[in-house]
Design a binder for these strands. Sequence first.
DNA 1: GCTTGAGTCTGTAGTCGCTACAGATGGCAT
DNA 2: ATGCCATCTGTAGCGACTACAGACTCAAGC
Lengths: 151, 151
Amino acid sequence: MADTAIPIGELSRRTGCNIETIRYYERIGLLPAPPRRGRYRSYGAEDVGRLGFVRRARELGFTLDEVRALLGLAVGGEASCAEVRDLAAAHLKNVRARIADLRRMERALAESVRACDAGHDAGCPLIQALSAERSGDPRASRARVGSPLGR
Amino acid sequence: MADTAIPIGELSRRTGCNIETIRYYERIGLLPAPPRRGRYRSYGAEDVGRLGFVRRARELGFTLDEVRALLGLAVGGEASCAEVRDLAAAHLKNVRARIADLRRMERALAESVRACDAGHDAGCPLIQALSAERSGDPRASRARVGSPLGR
DNA sequence: GCTTGAGTCTGTAGTCGCTACAGATGGCAT
DNA sequence: ATGCCATCTGTAGCGACTACAGACTCAAGC
C-alpha cells in the first residue's frame, strides 16, 4: 500500500490541491507540519482526508478562517454540531447576499446590452447609463455585504 | 458655484468613493493627475463625472482593466458602441457563471444545514459530508470559471 | 500672534488565497 | 557520470483596495 510516506506530489494528485497551496496551508498553520524523510515532507492517509476536507469546504466557499474553525469542530463530537450548523448557516446567508448582488448586476448588464442592441442613435446607451448619475445616497451601497466595491 | 477647485475630500463625498481609493486610482493611472493648489489636489466638475462613471462600472462588477477600457471607449463616439457592447456581454457571461457557481454552493449548504437540523445521531452530518470523498476527477473543478479554488 | 483642529500630503505595509518564480538539493535510472 | 524529475526554501506578484505613520497646510478662534 502507498498509505504511508506519501510525498507532496502524490498528496497533490490525490486531493487535486496544488503543491504550492499545500505548503501555503502548512505555513499558515491550517495543516500540521508533517514529519520529514530527509528534507522531504512525508504524509499519511489522514493527511489526505484532512486536506480533502479543506478542499471541499473551500469549494463551498468557506474562508480559510472558517475552514480552520470547521477543522477544530470536526474532531469534537456531537457537542459541536450546533456550532457547525451555525457557521454554515451564517455562510449560507453570505452566499445568498452575494447571489442577490450578482443578480442585480446581471439585470443591469442584460438591460444595457439589450439597449445597445436596440438602437444607437444618440451615442452608446451603455456608456450613457454609466455616465448618468442616479438618485440616492452614493454611500449606501458601500455597506452592503459582497458589494464589488469595498471588500 | 463649487464646480472649480474641488478638494479631494469633497470629491470623495460627492462620488461616495474613499479618498485613499481616489489616490489609488490616480497612482495606477485610471484617473489623470489633477492640477495642484499648492500641494493639494484640485479637481473640477469633469472629475466628478469621470469618477462617478468608474464607480458605477465597478458596481456592475467590471474589473479596473475593463473600466479603463470603457473609459477609453466612452470618449470615442458611436464607432465604439459595438466594442462596449461586447465588453459588457462578455462580462455578463462571467457574472452568470459566478451566479451559477454560487447557486451550486447555496444548494449544497442549504442541504447540509437541513440535514443538521433533522437528525444528529451519528455525528454532525455537515462534517461527515465534508469528510466524505466524492466520485469524479478531483481536478475537474479547478478549471471552472469563478470556482472558489484556483482564482 | 499662537494654538487648535481639520484636511491633506507621501510612502509603505497589510488584507485574502493563492500562484509563480529562482536557485539549490535529492534520489533514481541509464 | 549524467540526466532528469521531484522537492526544497524564500520571496514577490496578483486585484482592489484599506490602513496606518508622520509631515504639512490652512482657516478660525482666542
